[in-house]
């Protein structure tokens, strides 16, 4: 059973619809005791980093997610949920993240290295470039996925990035280390490619039991 973490800031419905289409069982909960029993977790998220961390703290989910991940059970963060896996963010003033992966979350500057301006948010279909091996990318070809975000992850440790997309900067798109994974785009809105990536995560969750 997949547990979807409900802390009040995610498009839970779309994620659960995608899991339904893939024929897996899931439940939505904000209760650490219930979530503890999940074979794998999904941390969705839309909105601001600071608000999200405040909600996770208030519901005593911060510590729980950190412990769950350290126990080696799989965790997948999606969009803001992926950003929360990192150490800190500059969104609405600095705030601490879950610190499961090394790096920080910064805003797109809107100007690329040649001084050319570009639109923020990064919204639409962008091509994934596989940069490192990941179970999530098993058997898949580099393809387009759907992004909507104004902040991205900056990290000195490139080994956590397994796929990236080009948008003024190299945007980490699929990340992972150990049993902690993240996708900056919305797999549940990314057509066949998104569903295939999610399916790989679900297979990996099943395999861990």
């Amino acid at each position: 059973m997949i547990g979807i973490i409900d802390y009040g800031m995610g498009n839970l419905f779309s994620v659960s619809c995608a899991l339904d289409r893939l024929g897996v069982e899931w439940f939505i909960s904000d209760d650490p005791e219930k979530l503890q029993n999940a074979k794998g977790l999904i941390l969705p998220g839309v909105g601001s980093f600071k608000d999200a961390m405040a909600l996770l703290d208030r519901q005593e989910l911060t510590r729980f997610i950190q412990d769950y991940a350290k126990s080696g059970k799989p965790l997948l963060g999606i969009c803001l949920g992926m950003q929360l896996l990192f150490e800190e963010s500059e969104e609405n003033g600095p705030s601490k993240g879950l610190a499961l992966l090394p790096g920080r979350v910064v805003r797109f500057s809107g100007t690329d290295r040649n001084g050319e301006s570009y639109k923020v948010p990064h919204m639409g279909w962008n091509r994934l470039k596989f940069t490192n091996r990941s179970e999530l990318q098993n058997g898949l070809e580099q393809d387009y996925v759907y992004f909507v975000h104004s902040f991205y992850v900056e990290t000195d440790d490139k080994t956590v990035i397994t796929a990236s997309a080009e948008y003024g900067v190299e945007v980490p798109a699929v990340v992972g280390r150990g049993s902690v994974y993240g996708m900056q785009f919305h797999p549940e809105k990314s057509g066949g490619m998104g569903m295939a990536l999610l399916e790989n995560y679900l297979e990996l969750v099943e395999g861990k039991v």
């Binding site: 570009y118 091509r127 948008y167």
Partner: peptide
């Protein structure tokens, strides 16, 4: 700008 962001239909 370097990007593979697609134009949407």
């Amino acid at each position: 700008m370097d990007s593979m962001l697609t134009k949407r239909i």
